[in-house]
Amino acid sequence: MPFITNTKAKEQVDIFYEDYGSGQPVILIHGWPLSRKSWEQQVWKIVEEGFRCISYDRRGFGTSSSPWDAYDYSSLASDLNAIIEELELKDAIIVGFSMGGGEVVRYLTDYGPSRIAKAALISSIIPLVKQKPDNPSGVPEDALEGIIDALQKDRVGFLKEFSKGFYNFEENKGEKISQAQLDYDFTIASFASPRATIQAALAWMHTDFRPELENVTVPTLIVHGDADATVPIETSAKQAHDGIKYSTLEVIEGAPHGLNVTHPDELNEILISFLKK
């Protein structure tokens, strides 16, 4: 099985990855609380269009190892850097979904753009989730604390229901999302390290990336659904677009947070067009 070991981490971490195709490398960074498997509808298309597609499991999730600590974004970005260095990637395109958008921004902050040609933020939490006086539309502190409390008391119970909101299930069931997909997501999410699930959630809840947006100096695609109830577009994509100088915002009408699953054709068309520019 292919693993890359991050020997520069505080505690040695083995990151599982999959590497298909050839050509310019595209690195896919998954969201919380899933794994690389969430990119199923994008990997084949990226490879088919002539790119090398690399997807990996964030530490604590999927098949990667699960340290007890170090789920802050700089630690997570160090895993991405280990992959880029070990595979000797250049001119890479880094694509982050939801929480994964944080790794994109923090990587560019900590390591710079020398190996990166472009970036993409898909349904991303960037730049800030939490409500603050200067971010009034963010998620209130007590709601975030409620998520952590639920994860501590009944993690699998919380995860069982979480993906319904992820996909706006009641509105999209049948045509765009199946019960089987929810069951699949639950299996992936429940398999993750309980400790990692909580610590990674704390990272995406409380990290403010607004001061770092100026570090994103490569052409950047931002894709978001205007029906995203998990990460509303006003507090995320629109702010990111305003703060990232070389960014393009694409809005998919009626799409929920998990648009990579519910609207794969629309997302793939936008993404492939950006990759080829």
Rank of each mutant, 00 (worst) to 15 (best):
I4V: 14
T5A: 15
N6Y: 07
A9K: 07
A9E: 04
I15L: 12
F16N: 14
Y20W: 10
G23A: 13
G23F: 08
V26R: 00
I27Y: 01
I27K: 00
I29F: 11
H30S: 02
W32T: 01
P33H: 07
L34V: 05
S35G: 11
K37Y: 08
S38H: 09
S38V: 06
W39T: 00
V43N: 04
W44Y: 15
E49Y: 10
E49M: 11
G50H: 14
C53F: 08
C53M: 05
S55L: 06
R58D: 10
R59E: 04
F61R: 09
S65C: 13
S65D: 15
S66C: 14
P67I: 10
D69N: 12
L76G: 15
L80H: 03
I83N: 01
E85I: 09
E86L: 11
E86W: 11
L87H: 05
L89Q: 03
V95F: 07
G96M: 07
G101W: 06
G102R: 12
G102N: 11
Y107L: 00
Y107C: 00
G112I: 03
P113F: 01
P113G: 04
K118T: 02
A119N: 04
A120P: 04
L121R: 02
S123M: 01
I125M: 14
L128M: 12
K130P: 06
K132D: 15
P133A: 08
N135H: 14
V139W: 08
P140N: 11
L144C: 09
G146Q: 13
I147V: 11
I147Y: 10
L151Q: 05
L151H: 07
K160N: 11
F162R: 07
F166P: 04
Y167L: 05
F169T: 00
K176G: 02
S178W: 05
Q179V: 08
A180C: 07
D185F: 14
I188W: 10
A192N: 11
P194E: 01
Q199A: 14
A200P: 06
A200Q: 07
A201G: 11
A201Q: 13
W204L: 13
T207V: 15
F209E: 03
E212V: 03
L213K: 00
E214F: 04
E214L: 04
A229V: 09
T230H: 05
V231P: 02
V231H: 01
P232W: 03
P232F: 05
T235S: 09
K238Q: 01
Q239Y: 06
Q239P: 02
A240K: 00
I244T: 02
I244D: 00
K245Y: 02
E253V: 10
E253C: 09
E253M: 09
V261K: 01
V261Q: 02
T262G: 03
T262Q: 01
I272W: 08
